[in-house]
């Protein structure tokens, strides 16, 4: 957003919500920026001419958001890349403490690896659903609390089931060995450095 433009609080809030809604709807960041910039300039000029925001986005901002989202193509390829980065990132945070504890003798059961991936995917999914829901104006606080509570309970239940299965079901163990553990550590370090450089761009 252009920070130099002085917009009303209502317009600023709407643009922020629209950005969040479109991003969590897996739209391309370039398209989102294009829409937000066009709309921001339009709102700036409209406010100078005394037009209410409803004239620009209609009486139901939620419907307007859905309309914009429907017009834009979904960028699944790009978002799949981000999701892989998040999953890989969360796995690296799991692996480093394990290397410190286990030394150069890393080993995981297949169930453990699968459950970590499932929990990461679920976390991303729930976060997207909740953020998208809260971005739509008009949703009540009660609705938000119920959604958050429901998702937290479901997430906790699945996490506990995974932990229980890991402790009670025999699943094949993958031993990385000294060389394997060193390779995993080096790959993770390179990945994290790359992630920091990419994020800082």
């Amino acid at each position: 957003m252009n920070s130099e433009l002085e917009l009303s609080r209502k317009s600023k809030r709407f643009l922020e919500d629209l950005r969040v809604y479109l991003i969590t709807s897996r739209k391309s960041l370039d398209d989102v920026n294009e829409i937000i910039n066009g709309l921001e300039n339009h709102l700036y000029e409209a406010e100078r001419n005394g037009k209410p925001i409803e004239r620009i986005v209609g009486r139901s901002p939620g419907e307007y958001m859905e309309m914009v989202s429907g017009e834009l193509t979904t960028d699944n390829k790009n978002w799949f890349k981000y999701i892989c980065l998040i999953i890989f990132g969360s796995l690296s945070f799991m692996i480093f403490p394990d290397i410190i504890i286990m030394g150069l003798n890393l080993s995981y059961t297949i169930l453990e690896i699968v459950s970590r991936i499932v929990i990461s995917v679920m976390f991303i999914l729930f976060a997207f659903v909740y953020i998208k829901y809260t971005a739509i104006p008009g949703h009540s606080v009660t609705g938000r609390v119920i959604l958050l509570l429901g998702m937290t309970l479901l997430f906790s239940a699945i996490s506990f089931i995974m932990i229980y299965l890991n402790g009670n079901i025999d699943s094949p163990i993958i031993h990385f060995g000294t060389v394997g553990t060193m390779i995993v550590a080096v790959v993770m370090i390179i990945f994290l450095i790359g992630l920091v450089v990419w994020a800082a761009k």
Binding site: D31, E34, I35, G38, L39, N41, H42, E45, A46, R55, I56, V57, G58, Y64, M67, V68, E71, L72
Partner: peptide, 25 residues
């Protein structure tokens, strides 16, 4: 903005002006 104003001038006054941006994109 000018485009939206022109549309309004042609009688499309029930049209939310912001609708044009995804179409233009």
């Amino acid at each position: 903005y000018e485009l939206a104003e022109k549309l309004e001038g042609f009688g499309f006054d029930s049209f939310s002006e912001g609708t044009i941006y995804p179409l233009l994109l």
